[in-house]
Nucleic acid binder design. Structure first.
Lengths: 128, 128
DNA sequence: GCATGACATAACCAAAGAATTATATAACCC
DNA sequence: GGGTTATATAATTCTTTGGTTATGTCATGC
C-alpha cells in the first residue's frame, strides 16, 4: 500500500475518541477485547469493530491466548503519522523564518527608500 | 471545545489525501481557493468543502483580498495532534523499556532458579 | 450599471462509518 | 459432551462524508 493510503487509514483510525482511548490503554501493555471494552458504555461488537479498524490501519496487532485475542500496539504507523506532521510543521516553520527574514528585509528597504511614493492600494492578506 | 473534540476534528481533517495536499501546499504560503484547486481533478465546490473542513478544524484560517479568500495554515491544531502522538509514543516506549528491564530480570531469575520445574502451559501473548 | 471572476450555498446522491441486536464460532473447563 | 467465556459475523439502521451540478452572492473594473 502507498504511504498516502497508510496515512489515510491511520488518521481516520485516530479520528475516533474511542479508538484513541484504546490506543492510550494499549500503551500500558497488551489487553484483551473484554478488557478494552470494560471502560466504555458500548456493546462488545462495537469494540470489536473499532479494534478491526485499528488492526487494518496496522496500529494494532493481535495474539492468541486461549479464547482471548490480546491486542498490542504497533508503533510504526504512529511513527509515520508523527513524521508527516513533523515534516510539514518544519516546512511551515521554515517558511515562517523566511517570512521573518523577508519582513526584516522589507523593513530595511522601506527605511532606505522611505516615502518615495504612497502605496497604491492596501490589500489585506499577504500573497506570495 | 474539549481537546478530545479538537483531536477528532483534526485527525478527521488529516484523514483525507486532498486535504493533506492542501495543507502541504499551505506550508509554502497563503493561497486562494482557485490556486488550491488547480492541481486537483475536482470541482471548485468540492475544494471549497475541503477548505471548510480544514477551517472548522482550525487548521486553516482565511483572509480577504478583493474577491479572494486566501487560506493560511494555523499551526496550533497540528501541534496538538503531534503532541498527542508524541505523548503516547513516549508512554509506549517507556513501557517497552520497563518490559526490557523485566525481561532482563526474568532472564537473571531463570539463571538463578534454572530447571526447578517445567512450565505449566505455554501461553502465547504476554499478559500483564 | 453591468459583465466578470472568485467563491459560497443548495439540493442531491452514493458510499462509508458507527452503532445496535441477534447469532455463530471456537476454546476452555468440568 | 455440555455449559461457559471470549470474540467474530450478519443484518439492520442512521448519520456523515465526499462528490456532483446548478445557482447565488459579492467585489471589481470598465
Amino acid at each position: 500500500m502507498l504511504l498516502t493510503q497508510h496515512l489515510d487509514a491511520t488518521f481516520a483510525a485516530l479520528a475516533d475518541p474511542t479508538r484513541r482511548a484504546i490506543i492510550a490503554r494499549l500503551t500500558q501493555g497488551e489487553a484483551s477485547v473484554m478488557e478494552l471494552a470494560r471502560p466504555f458504555d458500548m456493546s462488545q461488537p462495537a469494540i470489536s469493530k473499532h479494534i478491526k479498524v485499528l488492526e487494518q490501519a496496522g496500529l494494532v496487532s493481535r495474539g492468541q491466548d486461549a479464547q482471548r485475542r490480546p491486542c498490542r500496539l504497533e508503533p510504526k504507523p504512529l511513527a509515520e503519522a508523527t513524521s508527516w506532521l513533523e515534516y510539514h510543521r518544519e516546512l511551515f516553520e521554515a517558511r515562517f523564518q523566511r517570512l521573518d527574514a523577508l519582513l526584516e528585509e522589507m523593513k530595511a528597504e522601506r527605511r532606505a527608500t522611505a516615502k518615495r511614493k504612497p502605496t497604491v492600494k492596501s490589500r489585506k492578506g499577504v500573497r506570495k
